[in-house]
C-alpha cells in the first residue's frame, strides 16, 4: 500500500507499471482497477488556464493512509496505490491516480471507487483556478461523485 504526493508532473501509467512490478507478485492478483483524474480546461462554465493545488503536509498523507485502511477493512485487497499531484498544474495533466489490486474484480472496482470518493471528501487538498482573464478563484467544494 502506498501514498505518494508529487510536486512534478507524473505519468500515471508508468507509475502503475512500476508499482505493480515492484510490489506485486505475478499470478497473485486477478484484477486491477484504476482511476486517473486529469485537469480540465473548463469549470463552472468558465475557461480554466491553470490551477494550483495546495495540501496540508502530514495530514494529507495520514488521511490517505486512513482511507486505504478503511478500504482494507471492507475489501480483500492485494495492494492499493494513491498518487496525488500538488503545485502548479496545467489542463491535460494528471492530478490523481488510484490503483487497486485484488483477486477478483468486484473488490478492485468497488475499493477503487471508494478510495477516490473518500479522497475527494476527506483528504486536505485545495484547488485554486486561474481563469482566461488571469483572475483567480478557489474551488469551493467537491461534488458528490455518487450523484453525478
Amino acid at each position: 500500500m502506498a501514498v505518494i504526493i508529487v510536486e512534478d508532473q507524473f505519468d500515471p501509467w508508468q507509475a502503475l507499471q512500476v508499482h505493480q512490478q515492484s510490489h506485486l507478485a505475478s499470478g497473485q492478483f486477478g484484477a486491477t482497477a484504476t482511476f486517473i483524474g486529469t485537469m480540465r480546461d473548463f469549470n463552472e462554465g468558465d475557461e480554466v488556464c491553470a490551477m494550483t493545488l495546495e495540501h496540508y503536509p502530514g495530514m494529507t498523507e495520514s488521511q490517505l493512509q486512513l482511507i486505504i485502511d478503511d478500504a482494507n477493512q471492507q475489501w480483500p485487497l492485494q495492494d492499493a496505490l494513491i498518487i496525488h499531484r500538488v503545485g502548479d498544474i496545467l489542463p491535460g495533466q494528471p492530478i490523481v491516480l488510484v490503483g487497486c489490486w485484488s483477486a477478483h474484480r468486484a473488490a478492485a472496482f468497488d475499493a477503487c471507487r471508494f478510495l477516490m470518493e473518500a479522497l475527494k471528501s476527506r483528504a486536505p487538498f485545495w484547488k485554486k483556478e486561474t481563469l482566461s482573464d488571469q483572475s483567480h478563484r478557489w474551488v469551493e467544494k467537491n461534488t458528490d461523485g455518487y450523484s453525478h
Partner: peptide
C-alpha cells in the same frame, strides 16, 4: 491546530 475550507482535491 489547523483551520481550512472544505477540501477540493482529486
Amino acid at each position: 491546530i489547523a483551520f481550512f475550507p472544505p477540501v477540493t482535491g482529486g
